[in-house]
Amino acid sequence: MNRSLLTSLMVLSAVLLLPVLQAGADTVKLRPVVSAYGDMKGAGFSEPEGVGCGTGQQFIIADTGHGRLQQFQIADDGIKPGAEIKVPQINYPQRVRLNSQGDIFVLDGKQHRIIRLNAAGQFKSIIAAKGIPGPVPSMMPRSFAIDKADTIYVLDVLSSRVVIAGPDDVYRKQIAFPQGNGFFSDLAVDASGTLFLLNSVTGSVYSAAAGSDVFTLLVKDLRSFSRFPTSLAVDQKRIYVVDQYGGGVAVLGRDGAFQGHKLKTGWKEGELRYPSDICLMEAGYVMISDRGNNRVQVFMLEDENK
C-alpha cells in the first residue's frame, strides 16, 4: 500500500472516530456508593417512591408505604439517617423536593395535594397557587419541581398544564401541555429555569426555556432506550430519565441525544427494580428511589472512561 493511501486512510479513520471519541468523553456512569434501607432505628423502608435533594448534603426519602419522610445526610462517602418526619397532613408521600430555605414539599398521592413543611418538618401550608385561573381553579398534581429561586412548578394533570407559582405560593402563570396523546408524569427544572416535561406513554421529552409560554419537543420517542420512562432530573450537562420497567436510567445530552442506558434490573446493590424518582446533588451524587427493592440508592456520577 503506498504511503499517500495509508495517510489518507489514517486521516479518514481519525475523522470518523472523532464523534465517537467525543461522545465517549462526554458520557457518564453511575457508580453505586451506598443504599439507604431504613431509619436510624433500623426500621426498613416500604416502597419508597420519592427522593428529594437539598442544596447541601441533605436528602429526604418519601417512605411511601409507611406514610413518612426520612431525612439523610451524606457523610464521608456514606450516609447518615436523620430524623423521621411524620405529620398528619401526609398519608402517602410520593414525591419530595426541597427549596433553598430547606422547606420540604411533599406530594401526597392519596390526597392529591402538595404539602409544605418547614425545615424541621412541621406543617406550613398546602400549595394552592393562590389566584390560579380556571376553568378548574384547583390542581391535580402528578409531580412538581422547585427551581433555585424557589419558584414552584406543578404538573397539573386535571387541567393539562404546568402551573407556576412564586415562593409565596402566588400564581404566576401556566404553560399548557403540548397537544397529542400520552400521559405527562414528571417535570424538572434546571439552574437557568428551563423546564423539562416527560410524557411516559409516548416517551417524549419537551422543554420550555425560562419565560417561554410553550413547550417544544426535545426528544420524540425515548422508548427504544427506556421501557417506561417515569421521572427525570436535569443538570447543566445532561438529562437523566428513570426507566421504571427497564430498571435503569436513560442518559441524554441537553440536546436530547441519547448517551446511554445505565444500570439494570435486579435485587443486588447497584441494580434497580421499578425505580420511581431521581434527584441530583451538586457534589455529583445521584439518588434513585429503588421502590421495588424498598430502598434508595446513592450513586456517584463519574466519567465513563474513568
Partner: peptide
C-alpha cells in the same frame, strides 16, 4: 377510587 392511596392517573385528568 379517590379514597385509595393510588389512583390510576388517567382517571384524574380532564
Amino acid at each position: 377510587a379517590y379514597n385509595k392511596n393510588r389512583i390510576h392517573w388517567p382517571v384524574t385528568d380532564k
